[in-house]
């Protein structure tokens, strides 16, 4: 039978310094939201849009088994004249275990200012890494691109924790998709009005 737990060595491997550091002071977290409290379901979250020209959207992610939760806010600058869409700003509010917090932090570092296509590629590679059951991924280009996010390889051995690591990435994907689809509907409406 598979051993889904860990010994001391595994514990150190899962909670590497990069993860513990990132979890203590995660990048991209805004607002001062205490753990728990009545607003912990995210209803009370309001993040101000900084880039008016961008398409903004939010996605609330919740892991009901442990209460990890985050609202991921993105502002996407639409590509002009066929250029790529850019993630102009990505921030989040939330609370959770060190794995979810560190993963959010590293995800923000990786996709902030990047093209949407690049962010989606990273998300796909990160999912592959998390589904690798500890084996990691072979694609060296993907390894390089994931950078610090590769430290979550140790987490991928533990089925109960994979969702923690994926929380932020899922929120990024959902909020970017929402921003773009809202934008398209708006564009279409404007065009129809002009026609």
């Amino acid at each position: 039978m598979a051993d889904f737990g860990m010994d001391d060595e595994d514990l150190e491997q899962m909670y590497q310094e990069v993860i513990l550091d990132a979890a203590r002071d995660p990048h991209g977290r805004v607002g001062d939201q205490a753990d728990g409290g009545e607003d912990s379901d995210g209803d009370g979250v309001t993040i101000r849009v900084e880039h008016e020209a961008c398409l903004a959207a939010e996605s609330h992610q919740f892991n009901p088994t442990c209460g990890d939760q985050a609202t991921i806010h993105v502002e996407v600058a639409p590509g002009e004249q066929g250029g790529p869409d850019l993630i102009q700003r990505i921030v989040w509010q939330g609370s959770g275990c060190s794995i979810s917090q560190a993963s959010l932090s590293i995800m923000v570092d990786l996709v902030q200012g990047q093209t949407v296509d690049h962010a989606m590629d990273l998300a796909a590679d990160f999912r592959k890494l998390m589904e690798s059951r500890g084996a990691g991924i072979e694609d060296e280009k993907a390894q390089d691109a994931l950078g610090d996010a590769m430290v979550f390889q140790g987490v991928s051995k533990y089925p109960m924790r994979i969702k923690c690591a994926l929380l932020g990435w899922e929120g990024m994907k959902a909020s970017v998709a929402q921003a773009l689809s809202a934008g398209r509907v708006g564009d279409k409406a404007v065009k129809e009005e002009q026609a």
């Binding site: 737990g5 860990m6 514990l11 442990c66 959770g96 275990c97 060190s98 794995i99 533990y158 923690c164």
Partner: peptide, 13 residues
Amino acid sequence: GVHPHDVGQYVDS
């Protein structure tokens, strides 16, 4: 300062 998921993982080890 330590999320229960992390506490659980630590004591499970």
